[in-house]
Every structure is written in structure tokens, then in C-alpha cells.
């Protein structure tokens, strides 16, 4: 269920690499079941922020609470409560669909029985039951991305992080992918998603736009379009990025 309960809470997050400030005092929160679009130019600091939220990197200062856990104090505990997929890395190409489910289910501490049940559930939903023993490398990209999304959900995480999940995917599959996002969001999973497709920014409940390490804007797509007098999110994005330059 979607609620007003906060599942991600970031206060005064700063991350420096030497003299370079990658994340400059970020403060924001995300609710349960919310779909948050995380946008920004290349090099704006999105990946750095995601790495901190997922417990892969430590902040220089500031407080980050994810699923009720302080990431800085207990990064391993956070990892059990989140799912992650990206365009560049999702599943193992030289393992079968079943082996990928077993591997990730195992990593997240599910029993064999649980893994089997969850895999059956997802394969049925994707109408991919006959693919169970196929190597990932023989599966077209769009289907692979839908599978990767299912695998990232195998342990019913509180939050799922999607880093450009639809890059290069055909326009039909891209839309089916978003239907899957809505479905998990309706069931109460928070979705944290980055994309370069600006039409997809419109599908998010709220959008956060980063530029040069700072949050330049964060609101619903509707409110952002009104505020910047823009027809669509592409115009909003270009206005914000150009203003900063």
C-alpha cells in the first residue's frame, strides 16, 4: 500500500572526492510506494547519491535513513531491504533464467522453496515459463530487462533502485516496463528511477532534478511544468540545466 510513511530520508548529505563536491548538501524524503524520478545531466551527481543510498559508498557528512535503517551505521542491513537493477549490469549472461533467480534469491537469503515460488510467479506473469532453462545471452534485451526487474524484486524489497532501466529498449517494451513499475508501486514498493527519456519523467509521481551536485528542483511533473512555464518535462529539464550554466 502507498502511504505517507517515509522510507527514504536524506538530511544534509555531502559527498566529496578530494576537493570535488559530488553531492552538495542534499535533503529530501521519499514515501512508501512512491515513484521518484531522479534526473540530471551526466556528471550531476546522481550515481554518487544512489551509491550512498544503497550502502555502496559512505557519505562525507549528513544522515541517510533507508527503510528505517541508518545507512552509514548499517550498510549491510540496508542492502537486504532494497533491490537494484541498471542497464549496464543486471543479470548474468552465462547463467540460465533459473540460475539467476537462484543466485539472487540466495544472496537475499530466501529458501529454495521461496525462490521457486517467486520465480514461477514472475515467469508466469511475463509469459516466459518456457524460458526457465535458457541462457540469458540468448534472450532479447527488452525481455532481459523485464526479467532483471523481476529478479530485483524477488525478495520483496521496500525500495527498488532502477538506473536507466529502459535505455535502448524498444518503445512497446519500454511501456510494458512502466506497467510493471506501477504494479510494484501499487503494492507498496518505493521506486527510485533514473532515465534520459523525458516522457518517462512524466510517468513519475515526483521528479528530482540534480545539477552540479545540488537538487535544483523536486516536485510533481505537473507542478514543475507550471513553475517553469514549460509544455513538457523535456523543456523543464533543459531550462533548469541551461540556467545553471
Amino acid at each position: 500500500m502507498k502511504t505517507k510513511e517515509t522510507v527514504i530520508e536524506v538530511n544534509n548529505l555531502v559527498k566529496k572526492f578530494g576537493h570535488f563536491v559530488a553531492n552538495d548538501n542534499l535533503t529530501f524524503h521519499v514515501n512508501r510506494g512512491e515513484i521518484l524520478g531522479f534526473l540530471g545531466a551526466n556528471g550531476a551527481g546522481k550515481t554518487t547519491a544512489i551509491r550512498i543510498l544503497t550502502g555502496l559508498s559512505k557519505p562525507t557528512s549528513g544522515k541517510v535513513i533507508v527503510a528505517g535503517i541508518d545507512v552509514n551505521k548499517n550498510p549491510e542491513k540496508v542492502k537486504r531491504r532494497i533491490g537494484y537493477m541498471s542497464q549496464r549490469f543486471s543479470l548474468y549472461d552465462d547463467m540460465t533464467v533459473r540460475e539467476n533467480f537462484r543466485f539472487y534469491g540466495g544472496v537475499y537469503g530466501l529458501t529454495r522453496k521461496q525462490i521457486r515460488e517467486r520465480m514461477r510467479f514472475y515467469l508466469k506473469k511475463l509469459a516466459m515459463e518456457s524460458y526457465e532453462n535458457m541462457l540469458l545471452q540468448n534472450i532479447p534485451l527488452g525481455w532481459k530487462q523485464k526479467l532483471a526487474f523481476s529478479v530485483a524484486n524477488v525478495h520483496n524489497p521496500d525500495i527498488i533502485f532502477l538506473d536507466e532501466p529502459t535505455g535502448g529498449v524498444d518503445p512497446i517494451t519500454r511501456r510494458q516496463f512502466w506497467e510493471m513499475i506501477y504494479e510494484v508501486s501499487d503494492a507498496g514498493t518505493t521506486v527510485f528511477v533514473t532515465t534520459h527519456y523525458m516522457d518517462e519523467a512524466e510517468y513519475c509521481e515526483r521528479v528530482c532534478i540534480m545539477s552540479e551536485g545540488k537538487i535544483e528542483a523536486m516536485d510533481t511533473p505537473k507542478a514543475l511544468k507550471e513553475k517553469y512555464g514549460a509544455k513538457n518535462m523535456n523543456e523543464v529539464f533543459i531550462k533548469i540545466a541551461r540556467n545553471v550554466e
Binding site: 545531466a41 551526466n42 536507466e164 535505455g167 535502448g168 534520459h196 529539464f237 533543459i238
Partner: peptide, 13 residues
Amino acid sequence: DEPTTGVDAVSRK
């Protein structure tokens, strides 16, 4: 070959 894949909207323009 796909010079603008993974490139943000401003840089693409």
C-alpha cells in the same frame, strides 16, 4: 553509432 545513448537531454540537443 548511437552517439547520444546515455547522454542527457541538454547534451543531446
